[in-house]
């Protein structure tokens, strides 16, 4: 299968000037993702997992190395160096990111938030509304809550909304930074169902999950990060997913 993301020799450190501190966060990271794969990243907290994600999404400015992403519209793009405007475009249309924290527009209802995500893709108003509703229903967000401001939501509700907002776009590449950390089992199942559906539709995913049971049978490969370095990659975790994919290919 074609490569969609190739991280080459990525390094990142933080220089905090007024404290005279220099923190090495990532050192020589190499990761490749092929189209349609689900790859997991594991490692202790503080090891640099999220930093990798934020470098890919350019919330952090990568220091050295390259992050090659094969875009549908632009072809190969080095996310570490691409112009800001191109990154904004890719964020709107191709690359999704779900973190553990919901970053919302104040005074914007849940429904509006998800709808805006679809509108960013260039869809029509009516369709956006319909897709947003469908997604919110899937995550069992109460009809009443949908027209409320998410600032007052419970942790789990916020998280579900966060995932809904990213997944409703059906991005080509989805970065999942522990999106299920504080969800109950029923909600986790919902997330899982949707992830399987997106994988079937061809979304490539890179995920951090502390919940190993959740990861199991879901990801194709795993990378482990320790102290900012990539350690042995257990190259192949055969999964039900692969079998599923084989079946669908055979068809």
């Amino acid at each position: 299968m074609k490569e969609i993301l190739a991280i080459e020799h990525l390094s990142k450190s933080f220089r905090i000037h007024n404290l005279h501190k220099h923190i090495e966060a990532l050192h020589d990271i190499n990761i490749t993702l092929r189209e349609g794969e689900f790859v997991g990243i594991t490692g202790k907290s503080g090891s640099g997992k999220s930093t990798v994600f934020k470098c890919i999404y350019r919330t952090y400015a990568p220091e050295a190395g390259a992050i090659w992403y094969h875009s549908q519209t632009f072809g190969p793009v080095d996310l570490a160096r691409a112009p800001e405007r191109q990154i904004i475009n890719l964020r709107k249309r191709e690359i999704g990111y779900v973190s553990q924290f919901l970053n919302v527009m104040p005074r914007t209802t849940a429904r509006e938030l998800v709808k805006q995500a679809v509108l960013e893709m260039g869809r029509e108003e009516r369709q956006a509304e319909w897709e947003a509703d469908k997604m919110l229903a899937h995550f069992e967000l109460d009809e009443e809550l949908r027209d409320c401001y998410p600032a007052t939501f419970s942790g789990g509700e916020k998280l579900r909304l966060n995932i809904a907002r990213a997944m409703v776009k059906r991005p080509r590449l989805l970065l999942l930074d522990e999106p299920t950390a504080s969800l109950d089992d029923a909600s986790k199942l919902r997330v899982r169902e949707l992830m399987l559906q997106l994988i079937r539709e061809g979304t490539t995913m890179l995920g951090i999950f502390h919940d190993l049971a959740f990861m199991e049978n879901l990801c194709d490969r795993e990378y482990t990060i320790r102290d900012g370095c990539l350690t042995d990659l257990q190259n192949h975790v055969p999964s039900t997913l692969e079998t599923m994919r084989e079946i669908s290919l055979a068809k």
């Binding site: 220089r15 934020k54 350019r58 400015a61 800001e84």
Partner: peptide, 30 residues
């Protein structure tokens, strides 16, 4: 969407707004 930072009449840093806020580079921006 994008932001630039001025200090003493000069543009010292520019970037995506979330990058400026989460990973500022210049001592003044920090």
């Amino acid at each position: 969407d994008r932001t630039f930072v001025m200090l003493d009449g000069q543009m010292i840093e520019h970037g995506l707004t979330d990058q400026i806020l989460e990973d500022p580079q210049h001592p003044f921006t920090q």
